[in-house]
């Protein structure tokens, strides 16, 4: 148990990095044991990742899960890693990790940069809404990332098929039909999840406003309006797909998932570099000093 309590971010990051290197090595040589090694390291990474999250939850004094941006990113990375482990086991001959693992590692690295952010304080009355808000946005991020990976894979596979390049024994990708399905579903599911996330944020702020009329809705918070833009994009894309049949298939869907990811990157960049009431830096004038989650606490006039 002592050994498990010492697990750090480095442990699972290193495991995922090894898996990524193994996935990339498919491009150069064949190996009979790589598949097993790859799954073993991926499972080890996911296990240590899980233990880390459990240890963090036990140590945390926060009142709710996902109570800081750091937690939020590490949980998002965990969900994406779990999806990868499932896909790697179900499709062992395909190089899915080349596209998914960089996203997992990027989320962990982002979490590392957000370590100094203060947690979101939440009162007991708002805990449920805060959890719904956090979970929905987290899963939305995961699904958009997954859609992005599938979109890139689609474009690579599409290019390979158009150039009539022979099927590579080393670097295999899923069929266009499978990737197309994942892309389409990622768009719709991420739109739904983001809608739930934004709506629960509105409910949180309404409850806060009722409790304290000095708390206003944080319209000007960059994280809020960029998230709103991402939601608008996803809803527009979903409506476009519903009314314009050709937009449901092929490269268009792949480009739309890339667009969604670009919006997501914008939200994450704003979170990292712009002043925001969503769990700001310590000592910041934008709510961070209070460590306020603007969705939960709002911004005081």
């Amino acid at each position: 148990m002592n050994a498990l309590s010492g697990i750090s971010i480095t442990c699972f990051s290193a495991s995922y990095a090894i898996v990524l290197v193994l996935e990339l090595s498919r491009l150069w040589f064949r190996s009979g044991v790589r598949g097993m090694l790859l799954l073993a390291f991926a499972a080890l990474g996911l296990f240590t990742h899980t233990v880390y999250l459990v240890n963090e939850a036990a140590r945390s004094t926060a009142s709710a899960p996902l109570s800081s941006w750091r937690d939020w990113y590490i949980v998002a990375a965990w969900v994406l890693a779990a999806v990868y482990v499932y896909l790697a086991a179900a499709h062992p001959r395909q190089s899915l990790g080349v596209f998914l693992l960089p996203l997992v590692i990027a989320l962990i690295v982002t979490a590392h940069f957000l370590a100094d952010r203060t947690p979101f304080p939440q009162s007991d009355a708002l805990r449920v809404w805060a959890t719904v808000h956090g979970m929905a946005l987290l899963l939305g991020t995961v699904v958009v990332s997954l859609g992005f990976a599938a979109g890139v894979m689609y474009l690579v596979q599409d290019r390979r098929l158009r150039l009539k390049r022979p099927l590579s024994g080393r670097f295999r990708l899923p069929s266009l039909e499978w990737l197309d399905r994942i892309n389409g579903r990622a768009l719709v599911v991420s739109a739904l999840l983001l809608s739930v996330g934004v709506l629960s944020g509105v409910v949180l702020n309404t409850l806060n406003h009722r409790r304290d009329t000095n708390i206003a809705f944080p319209w000007t918070d960059p994280v809020v309006w960029t998230s709103g833009l991402l939601l608008l994009w996803l809803v527009a894309v979903s409506i476009f797909g519903a009314v314009y049949k050709p937009a449901r298939v092929g490269r268009k869907v792949a480009y739309l998932t890339l667009g969604s990811f670009a919006f997501l990157i914008m939200v994450l960049a704003v979170l990292l570099f712009a002043p925001s009431g969503h769990g700001g830096k310590p000592g910041s004038n934008h709510g961070g000093g209070r460590g306020a989650d603007s969705s939960a606490e709002g911004i005081r006039r």
Binding site: L161, L167, P174, S175, E177
Partner: peptide, 11 residues
């Protein structure tokens, strides 16, 4: 069938 059609269609 196997190297081209199979890469386009899943089933």
């Amino acid at each position: 069938v196997a190297d081209f059609a199979r890469q386009i269609f899943e089933r």
